[in-house]
Amino acid sequence: MRRARDPFFWGLFSGGGMLTALLLPALFLVTAITAPMGWFGMTGYEEWATLAGHPLTRAGLLLVAFLAFFHAAHRFRYTLYDGLQLYHLDALISIVTYGVAAVLTVLAAALLILVV
């Protein structure tokens, strides 16, 4: 079991790393900067809402969220662990970081499946 833990979380970390590296800059630029500034098209609510309602959008975003949360959790775990030399707290840090990622993933799923 101990053996399985490292490749499992590393798999999620690297999958998330790749996906976020390729997608997030453009997504963030458009949603957080150009849209409010009105620089390009599709600033209206209707168009956004249509797109947000599409099942593919929701499925895709759920995948991105799941991997991104675990990517960030894994990285942050090591940042605390090595960067601040908190080896003795490894168990606690792991539970908190991966735990937060898991809870956020569940919330994201609830949001994307039930609410939107």
Binding site: G16, T20, L24, L27, F28, T31, A32, A52, R58, L61, V64, A65, A68, F69, H71, A72, A73, H74, R75, F76, T79, L104, A108, L111, L112, V115, V116
Partner: peptide, 16 residues
């Protein structure tokens, strides 16, 4: 990892 976290939450927030 922190910007990545933030942006992901941001996108979900925008959906909400």
């Amino acid at each position: 990892s922190q910007p990545v976290m933030y942006v992901t939450l941001f996108l979900l927030g925008k959906m909400w």
